[in-house]
Write a protein that binds this DNA or RNA. Sequence first.
DNA 1: TTGAAAGCGATACCAG
DNA 2: CTGGTATCGCTTTCAA
Lengths: 345, 345
Amino acid sequence: MTVTLADVAARAQVSPATVSRVLNGNYPVAAGTRERVLRAVDELDYVLNGPASSLAASASDLVGILVNDIADPFFGIMAGAVQSEIGPGGRAGGERLAVVCNTGGSPERELTYLTLLQRQRADAVVITGGAIEDAEHMNALAAKMERLTDAGTRVVLCGRPPAPDTGAVALTFDNRGGGRRLTEHLLGLGHRAIGYIAGPEERTTTRHRLEGHRAALAAAGLPDGETVHGPYDRSSGYDAALELLRRDPSLTAIVAANDSVALGACAALRDAGRRIPDDVSVAGFDDLPFSIDTVPALTTVRLPLYEAGARAGRIAMSREKEPPGGVATVHGELMVRGSTAAPRG
Amino acid sequence: MTVTLADVAARAQVSPATVSRVLNGNYPVAAGTRERVLRAVDELDYVLNGPASSLAASASDLVGILVNDIADPFFGIMAGAVQSEIGPGGRAGGERLAVVCNTGGSPERELTYLTLLQRQRADAVVITGGAIEDAEHMNALAAKMERLTDAGTRVVLCGRPPAPDTGAVALTFDNRGGGRRLTEHLLGLGHRAIGYIAGPEERTTTRHRLEGHRAALAAAGLPDGETVHGPYDRSSGYDAALELLRRDPSLTAIVAANDSVALGACAALRDAGRRIPDDVSVAGFDDLPFSIDTVPALTTVRLPLYEAGARAGRIAMSREKEPPGGVATVHGELMVRGSTAAPRG
DNA sequence: TTGAAAGCGATACCAG
DNA sequence: CTGGTATCGCTTTCAA
C-alpha cells in the first residue's frame, strides 16, 4: 500500500541500508548512487515512516514546547521564537517537528503532556512560563524531568527557576528585579497609594514579581499595599481593579502582574469613571506588542521574549554539556510609555 | 536500560500480549490480571514506547494543528479550543498528543509541517486560517492532503475554503457576509468615504472580506474606495492607516481586515491627531478579547472562534464518514461597541 | 562504498 | 480469557 524504504531500494537498485544512509546523509555514499536513490524517492513520492525510524534509532525529531496559555501572546511570542529556531526553516539543523502543547496552566496536563512527549521519545522539551509552587507537584515534575533527561531528552526551562538535580537547563527572567523597578518608578513619581494585582497564587512568577514590588515599598519605608490575586488574563485584571478601588478609593496607581491584566485594569478604571493616568496610573509587565499603543499610559517592564525563546531553542538543540553562551537570567527593560503621571494634588 | 512491555509482563507473570491488552483497554481481561499488570506498570514506572506502538499499530495518537501565526490570539483561541477537545482532559477519548505547529504564513513551511506530520502517521490534522491562492501551492497542498487522507489521517480545514477531492473536511467562516455587513453598517450611519485595509494578497480571507466590502458599496451605488494591503498585524494596520489618510485626508471611516490591524490603525489615527470615532470610525474583524475594551470605538464582526475550534476538534476525532452535525459555514455576529459614530458635518 | 541481517518494542492474529 | 509469535519499517553493526 504505502511506499517503504525497500520499495525505494528496489527501484534504485541498491540495498535498503544504502537508501537509509542517503536519507540520513551522515554517511559516505557515492554521488551516483545518491543521485539514483533521490530520484527513486521522488518518483515514488516516498515519505519516511517516522515511528519505524524512531524505533530503530531510539530517537525522534519531535521537540515539544509547553505553554501555560496558548491564547496569550506572551507565550505565542516565545513559542514562535523557539519554533523558528528549531522547526522547519530553523537554523538549528533541518526539519524537526517543533510543536506547542497548551497546558492551560493545569499541573496535571503539564505532567500528562510530558508523559506523552516521553512516550514519543522527544528529542527535547522546552517548558515555558512560571512554575506552580506546590510541593507534591514539584516533586512529580522533578521526577518526570529527571526521567526525561535520563532517557536522552534535553529539557529546558524558560521563565521558571532551575530544577536542581534533574538535568534540566534553566533560562530565567529577572522577575524580582522587574517588579522592584516598576514600583520604584511609581514611587519616584510620588505615588504612595499603590494597589497590586498579582497573578495566581503559588506561581513562581507571581511570587517573585510581588516580592520585588514589596522590596521597593519596604526600601521606601512603606508598608505593603492592597493586593488582589487572579489569573493572568484580562478579565481578572478588570475585576481586580474594581476590587482594589473598592478597598481603597484613593489609590493613585495600580501595578499589574502582566500586561493582559493591566489592560483589563485600564478598562475597569475607564468604566469606573477614572481617567488614566490623570486619576490613576497603571503599570504592567511583559511585552505584548498591542499594549504598546493601545494603552499609551502604560508603564511596562519589557521582557525580551523573542530573544529568550530563540535562546531556549538553541539550548534545546545543543548537544553540548554546557549550552552555548552559558545559562543566564534575562533582565527586563523598564519602558515608560505615553503619559504615566505623578499623583494629583 | 529503559523498561519495556516484556519487563512488565515478566513482573506481572503474564504474557506481553496481555499487558498490551490491559494498556489499550479495548479487550477483555480478567479483573485480577488487569490489577496485577497495572501494579507492575506502576512499580516499574513503565512508559509506553510510542514509536514502537505506532509502528505495530500503524497509527499514532498525534494530532497536528497548523496555524498561520502563533502570536496572534485569533489562532491561539482556535488552537486552544481544538486542543482542549482532543488533548489531555479532552472529552474526545483520552490522551492524544494534540500539538500546534506555526507556519508563520509561509506556504513552504505549511507543506513541510504536513510532511512531518505525515511521517509521524498523524491521526488527524487541523489546518486553520486563510489559504494562499497560488496555483502551484494549491496543487501541492491538495496533493499532500489527498495523500494524508489516503493514509488514514483525517484532515480538517478550519477557516479556509473546501478542497474538493482531497478527502479533507472543511469548516468555513462567512467572510464575505461579514465584510458586507460591516460595511453596510457604516453606510447606514452615513459614511461615504471609507478606506479599506486589506490582509496580504493572495489569501482567501483577504479576498472574501474585501469582496463583501465591495459588494456592499456596489449595492449602495458607490465605487470601490481606497484599499491598502498588508500582513495581518498591528504595525501593518498602523502604516496602512497613514497611507489611507495620505491618499484621502477626508476619510470618515476605515475598515480593517482584522482586529489586530484595526488596533494598529487606531494608534495611527491617534498619532495623526484624528479622534476616534469623532473624526474617523474604525471597524474590524475577528474576535480578539482585548479589543473589546481597549478600543471602545471599534465595530467588529465577531467570529465564534472558540466554538469553531472545538467543532473542528470534534470533526477531527470523528471516525464517521460524515462529521457530527454535518459541515457548515460559521457566521459572524456584528458587534457595535462603544461609540462608533456617524460622520461629522 | 555497499550489502546482509539482527534487532528496536509493541500489536494482533491464531490457537488453546 | 490468555499465550505464542509473525510482523511493522527502519537503523546499524559486521563483512565484503
